[in-house]
Simulated scan of single mutants.
Amino acid sequence: MNLQTLFQDFNPSKFVVHTCLLIFTALLALKLDKTITWSYWAVFTPIWIWKFLVVLGAIVGTYVWWQYPHFRLEGEAYIHYKAMLISLAIHLILLMFELLVCDQLSTSRHLWILVFIPLIFISIVSIAICIWSVKHDRSYELELFCAVNILQFIFLALKLDTFIHWSWEVVFVPLWILMCLSLVDFLFCPIYHQNLIELMRSLITLLVLLTNKLDNRDELSSFSYIVVVSPLFISYATLIVMSFSSKGGNKWWFGIRKDFCQFLLSVFPLLQEYANIAYNNNVNRSSMPSEPVTQEPYRDEEIHKKVKDKKSQKNQKKNEAMKPVVPVTSIDMPD
């Protein structure tokens, strides 16, 4: 296990999002099984934490942007900041949808088609955001998910309002098509997408169990919701593990302006000692060193540049010292 690489490739945004979704899914399943008697507002607590961190991170990042104008000249700072604002807008509209869902589950005083309007609006806007993200080489997982599922959102709203009387198996047809196309695409590159293939298998299993549960078909309908969503736990666990090798992320959240690893080590210098240690459990005991193997200390680019300059200066002085010295004798010219 290489802790230095683990820190360098860690994506905190994906880790927070997938962890919050994992906890929320478990609480919602327990609520539907009547195992817990919490209100839906309490069940949605992980979602509120996620949105609070998004808003707080954008506020701090905006403060740093306007307080220190010279930071705007750092590389692609403007694109990073604009991407953060776009993501904030999407999350605020998504928060509106989540508030309406929570209120509808608690009171049932709205039509579901009205509840889904913010989500449908996000799906339409996400098409333009995906185009902008591709143009500027930015990530767009959430936007892409919303853009390709707009028809699924409409079917869900109409089914919940009983405007259509299709079975849930038919209602989920857009999602079935999307998953099958994605799985076929991943199968062409099994080496590079092995984790994604396992993720899609878990989601397809979830969809099969959920469809039979909602349609009350065969013995699968007797399963509790916590059992039905268990494949989703595997998917979230896979995504959480993958967040340690995802890299990327917007550097303007919370005004960090650097990789999360560099920021973490600058705030807690003592972690450098642990980040420089690598463990290998596959070596023989006879060849195992008595102490952990250490690597070169983690340094930022400026320190590496200074060390490189010092080495070049030493090499230059050494080369000058090795040059042969030719004596010069004066010759007097005769009158």
Rank of each mutant, 00 (worst) to 15 (best):
L3K: 06
F15E: 06
T19L: 14
I23D: 06
F24C: 02
W41G: 10
V43F: 02
I47V: 06
F52M: 05
G57T: 00
W65L: 02
H70D: 15
H70L: 13
F71E: 12
L85C: 08
L88D: 06
I90T: 11
I90E: 10
L94I: 14
L94M: 11
V101A: 00
C102Q: 02
D103R: 09
Q104F: 03
I113N: 02
F116W: 13
I117F: 10
S123P: 05
A128E: 03
I131E: 12
D137R: 08
R138S: 04
S139D: 10
F145L: 08
N149Q: 02
Q152C: 05
F153I: 01
I154F: 14
F155R: 06
F163Q: 12
H165V: 02
W166S: 09
L175T: 11
L178D: 09
L178Y: 13
S182V: 05
F186H: 14
P190I: 02
Y192P: 09
L196A: 10
L199V: 08
M200T: 09
R201S: 14
S202E: 06
S202L: 00
I204D: 01
N212H: 13
S224Q: 13
P231S: 03
I240H: 05
F244R: 04
G248W: 07
D259H: 14
C261Q: 04
L271E: 03
A275D: 05
A275M: 00
A278R: 06
N282V: 01
N284R: 11
P292W: 07
E296P: 11
V307T: 08
K311Y: 13
V325C: 08
T329S: 14
D335P: 10
